[in-house]
Amino acid sequence: MKARTELLAASAVVALFAAAPYLAPLVHLDISIVSEVLVTAIAVMSVNLLLGYTGLPAFGNAAYFGLGAYGAALSVQYLGFHFIEAILVGTALAFVGGLILAPFLLRRRGIYFGLLSIAFGQVFYFIAYRDTDLTGGEDGMTITRPYFGIPPAHVAIHELSFYYIALVAFVLALIAFRSVVRSPFGRTLVAIRQNEARVRFLGLNSDRFIFVALLISATMAGVSGALFALLINFAYPLELDWHQSGYFVLSMILGGAGTVWGSLAGAFIYVIGKDIISTITPLWQIFLGALFVACVLGFPRGILGSLAALLARSSAPAGVDPNATFDAHTPSEVNVGP
């Protein structure tokens, strides 16, 4: 996509979300649901970086999401921290979680990476589940949403102001995500997905790249989890559970693996779909499953991935024969010596 077109499209999407508090009531949508879309999109991005870009089955990102949620909730409950401080604590906790788990994960590939990710996530799940004194165990912990924290410090955060905080957080996360995946580092992650052996034979230690990708992913999931806890004023063990990781993966596939905007599209479909269907029937997961199957069959590259492929095809230069062989070798006069 041309830079101008992308900027225009991005501005339009952000403008649409900025107007959402006025648009959502028209379709009987609670603005906190749209907040959840934005917050979830950040977690989906964290999965996208590992799975969509690097090709690592990130089936345990709920661990970092849950650490972010509990970090925020606990710091509000026991330390009386304000909103911004709670977000920072939750994010820091998820980062530390990533720092601890990354050394175990970074040499694993394929299904082993996926299984180990799930296993680590379940460890955190059971800690939160069993440690009833601190976390409230199975029942979770309810908190009162704190004041904002930095001047104007004593501003209560209502649903509307939370929404705009979530929007700002999402836009910042998206810009960060985009610049990471477009950077030389991000291109190397894509290269690792396509052919890790060749990356190593370009003289690069791919484990180092995966280590940093894990840390970035954990941090993003932590931001998302902390915001989520403060959105619903509640932290509960299922946030750490592998089902939660599964929803992130599902949303990423729906939206488009390896695309910058796919995470938002996927989170939108998942959260709004869940909200609408669950008001109609308690069996919402069946219908969401059917939607998922339909999407994978109809748009195997996700909504945005398929859209991008369609755009690329329509703008491809005509008359290029993919099967053309090269011309006979004609040594040129350039000096390519080291």
């Binding site: 477009r182 030389p184 580092f185 190397t188 180092r208 940093v212």
Partner: peptide, 8 residues
């Protein structure tokens, strides 16, 4: 430059 987070 492979590790850079910004394109040089």
């Amino acid at each position: 430059q492979a590790f850079r987070l910004r394109t040089p």
